[in-house]
């Protein structure tokens, strides 16, 4: 998984409304944008569309067009997304530490993430 993909997944999942939207879509095979917006009254339809776009660009959901309707479903390979999300959460803290102790412009801090699956 590339860093930029990881970052996109982290940015997408770092927002509570987007996590809730993703969780809602995961409850169903497919949902239309209208059905999703109907469950998020307080958020507003335009904002829901923009959340859906961010989730789609992060590769977390797929969009299928059918006439004037857009249907959304959770994409396969979700385990990778959870791992990418967790990696980014920790990586984010080291990035911030590096910029705080060395000045935001310094290139001295290099952060690397790596993932192993293991049985213990």
């Amino acid at each position: 998984m590339t860093t930029s993909n990881s970052d996109a997944i982290f940015s997408a999942l770092a927002d509570p409304t987007r996590r809730a939207i993703l969780s809602l879509i995961g409850e169903h095979e497919e949902l239309t944008a209208g059905e999703i917006a109907a469950r998020f009254d307080a958020v507003g339809r335009t904002a829901v569309s923009s959340h859906l776009r961010i989730l789609r660009l992060a590769g977390l959901i797929a969009e299928r067009r059918d006439g004037r309707f857009r249907h959304y479903s959770v994409t396969p390979s979700p385990a990778d997304a959870v791992v990418a999300f967790l990696t980014s959460v920790y990586q984010n803290s080291l990035d911030q530490l590096a910029s705080a102790v060395q000045g935001a412009s310094s290139a001295g801090g290099t952060v690397q993430g790596r993932v192993d699956e293991q049985s213990a």
Binding site: Q112, R114, V115, D116, E117, Q118
Partner: peptide, 8 residues
């Protein structure tokens, strides 16, 4: 378990 490594 899942093991993640980060370093700086």
């Amino acid at each position: 378990e899942l093991v993640l490594h980060n370093e700086v």
